[in-house]
Amino acid sequence: MASHTFTLPDLGEGLVEATVLEWLVAVGDGVERNAPLVEVETTKASTELPSPAGGTVLELHAAEGETVAVGAPLFTLEIAAESGIVGTVPAEAPPTRRVRLRPPAAR
């Protein structure tokens, strides 16, 4: 078990902040990965953020109506194990391979 604090993700299109409209969970609630967690509003649209992982809600870092900057803490989850995080910008993963080449016999 480990607690993990998630920040407001980059919502794309150059947006730098969002306002918390409504929390869809409360402290102590168990959440599934990808379950709706919070509704936020940007200058462009309002959107639900899914939970990036399954776990238990430990803390909500912004009240409803409060504006949060991209990268600022949004909520803290207690997570059972490393279960993968969605909704974040994918970091460039090192490439992997399975195929092995058999070079041509005669060059």
């Binding site: 490439p95 992997t96 391979r97 399975r98 195929v99 092995r100 080449l101 058999r102 070079p103 041509p104």
Partner: peptide
């Protein structure tokens, strides 16, 4: 993916 590119290379061999 790297694998699909490698397979295509293998086919040319």
């Amino acid at each position: 993916s790297p694998d699909r590119i490698l397979l295509a290379i293998q086919r040319t061999f």
